[in-house]
Amino acid sequence: MTAALLAPSDPEAPPRRPSRSRVGVRDAVGQSLAIARRNLTQFKSDPSQLLDATVMPMVFTLVFVYVFGGAIGKGQADYRQYLIPGIMVQTVSFAAQVTGIALNLDFSKGVMDRFRSMPIARSAVLSGRIMADVCRLTLGQGVILAFAFLIGFRVRTDVPSVFAAVGLLVLYGVALSTIAAYVGLAIRSPQAVQSVGFLWMIPLQFGSSMFAPPSTMPGWLQAFVEVNPTTLVVDACRGLLDGGPVAGNVSGSLFWIGGLLLVFVPLAVRQYGRRTL
């Protein structure tokens, strides 16, 4: 075996010795994919990481449909149709929290030092994390949709609309993930990341049309709900899955997603740079 190492079996593929001071785009993408694969392997060895994105939303669905459903809506069946698009948005915002916590944990362990002492693109750890999160977000959407069908939710539009809804949700999830990434990198302790995560996520979730129609809320709250991007995404998904107006909410959502990415991607990258200097 030692002999095999002395003379590599494939002499054409020794590790690259960088002669330039920067990583090429192709190498950077390859390295991001390697990190993404690593992050997905983590789910395999520790499936509990996926609970946030799968089981939690199911529990919320059951509680809201069967405990509050009768009281909130005109009936459980109607409320179910109203609630599920909201739960799908909740799923991505729970899943986004994991991004921040996982990044924070990477930095608190020695493994970041190993990565930083290697000739890899600095952005690979961050972009690989986001790539893995897209997989996780999509999986979460699949699970919650299947579960929704099981308890009687029906799509009243068509298949392309469902794909459009899932696509929009994943995009929104990525935007929220970059916020979480920024928080996870800006704060040292993992516990604090979790607390701060809930602090910005709870108003974003409950101060929206996710669980109840805004028309039933007091005026000051309605004002917040109206500008909350979650409301736009939830209403866009309702349109795409249950029928109703779509265009305005979708474009509004995309506008918000673009804006959030524009602000938080540079912030997260800068914070990442500070931590890796």
Binding site: R17, P18, S21, R22, G110, D113, S117, P119
Partner: peptide, 16 residues
């Protein structure tokens, strides 16, 4: 970057 391509690090801090 060139240094990183030529070193290996093991011990207290770099970890698995």
């Amino acid at each position: 970057h060139q240094v990183r391509g030529r070193i290996g690090l093991t011990g207290q801090y770099a970890s698995v």
